[in-house]
Structure formats: structure tokens, C-alpha cells
Amino acid sequence: MLKPDYPLKTDRLILRPFAPSDLDALYDLQSRPEVTRYLLFDTRDRDAVEESLEQKTRAAALTEEGGNLSLAVELAETGQMIGDVILFWLSRERRQGEVGYIFHPDHGGRGYATEAARVMLRLGFEDLGLRRIIGRIDARNTASARVLERLGMRREAHFVENEFVKGEWADEVVYAMLEREWRAG
């Protein structure tokens, strides 16, 4: 089980559980085509974002395999929510997880996604005791690939036309890191 002592802080960011007051910021994020372009879901209307937020507010702890920890990411300096990060617990037996992130395009290129995802890797490896964490992306999402590479994850697989997303076949790339690589890094 993983229930972090919130808020989690880095030099520039605060990671915390989602709250109902995050609706406007989350809507601003999930309603943008440039944000959802490489995601499995399309742009969301306000009702769909409300449903998404309800799920996220319940994901402040990882209590069982198959669950996820979903956290809002704020700029420490202003308190503005600029994105979210997620850690999925894929398998208890195999001690495997998956990391993901979505950030507002106005805050891209500053290392925030890498900084926040690094916190999720730490939680997965050091607090939850995972042995392996993956990151799965659409092969066209080169910005996300750079984030995973900066985290020290290795590109392990490229699945050609693996997913049918938004009416087209898309390639999927999988990155991974082992606990021993995390500790050595």
C-alpha cells in the first residue's frame, strides 16, 4: 500500500491529491486538442472532465493491484495547477507499475514533467517496492519520449500499429526502468 505524506515537494513543484476546486484547471487541460492528441481519450467536455476529476480525487492512495495514484502538479511559486502525474500498480506478483503524465502546453519545455514523474518513480520504487516501471507512449509523441529518456528509462519496444486510437492505427513505444537502475542512477 502507498499513501504518501502530502504535499510532496520538489524545488519547483508541489504534488498533491486532486480536489473539487481543480475542475477549471483540469478542464483547461483535458479540453485541448494539442494535449489529448496522443492520449487514448479525445478532448473532453466539462461533464466528462467532472467525471475524470471524481476518479482522480479518489486516487490519492494506492491500496491494491490494478489501482492508480493520480496527483495534481502545481507550481510551488504560484500554486497554479499545470498538470497531473499518475502511477499505476500493474502487478503485485511481478512488482510492476507504469508512470504517466499530462502537462499544460503553456508550461512545456521547462522540465516540469520530468521533475514530477521522477517523484512518481521514487514513490513506486522506494515506497511501494516495485521492481520495474514502464512508460507507454504514442510513437509520434517525441516530447514525451524525451521526458522518459531524461528520467533514465530505456526504450524497450516499438509496437507497429498496436493501438487503434481515434480512428487510426498508432504505433506504441514502451520505455522501462528496473529498481536497480533507479538506485544506481
Rank of each mutant, 00 (worst) to 15 (best):
M1H: 06
M1Q: 06
D5P: 00
P7M: 04
L8Q: 07
L8N: 07
K9G: 00
D11L: 03
R12N: 02
R12G: 00
L13V: 12
L15M: 03
R16W: 10
S21R: 09
L23T: 13
L23G: 09
D24M: 11
D24W: 07
A25Y: 01
D28S: 14
L29E: 08
L29I: 15
Q30K: 14
Q30E: 12
S31G: 08
R32S: 05
T36L: 05
R37K: 14
R37S: 06
Y38W: 14
L40F: 15
D42Y: 11
D45R: 00
V49R: 07
S52D: 14
S52L: 15
E54H: 15
K56C: 11
K56P: 03
T57F: 03
A60I: 08
T63G: 12
E65M: 01
N68P: 01
N68T: 09
N68I: 08
N68C: 13
L69Y: 14
S70G: 05
L71P: 07
A72I: 02
E74T: 04
E74V: 09
L75R: 13
Q80D: 14
M81Y: 00
M81V: 13
M81D: 03
M81P: 07
I82E: 04
G83W: 01
G83C: 01
I86M: 11
I86T: 14
L87P: 04
S91W: 02
Q96G: 01
E98F: 05
E98S: 10
G100C: 07
Y101N: 13
I102N: 05
F103R: 15
D106T: 06
G108K: 08
G108P: 03
G109C: 08
G109L: 03
R110E: 15
G111E: 06
G111W: 00
Y112R: 04
T114A: 12
T114S: 13
T114P: 04
E115A: 04
A116K: 09
L121S: 07
L123C: 08
F125A: 02
F125S: 05
E126R: 11
D127I: 02
L128G: 06
L128D: 11
L130M: 14
I133D: 10
R136W: 02
A139Q: 07
A139Y: 11
A143Y: 00
A145Y: 03
V147L: 13
V147S: 12
E149C: 05
G152A: 00
M153H: 06
R155G: 03
R155D: 02
E156Q: 09
H158P: 00
F159M: 10
E163A: 12
F164I: 10
F164V: 13
F164T: 09
G167K: 07
A170P: 00
D171Y: 01
Y175E: 08
A176W: 06
L178S: 02
L178M: 12
L178Q: 05
E181Y: 09
A184S: 15
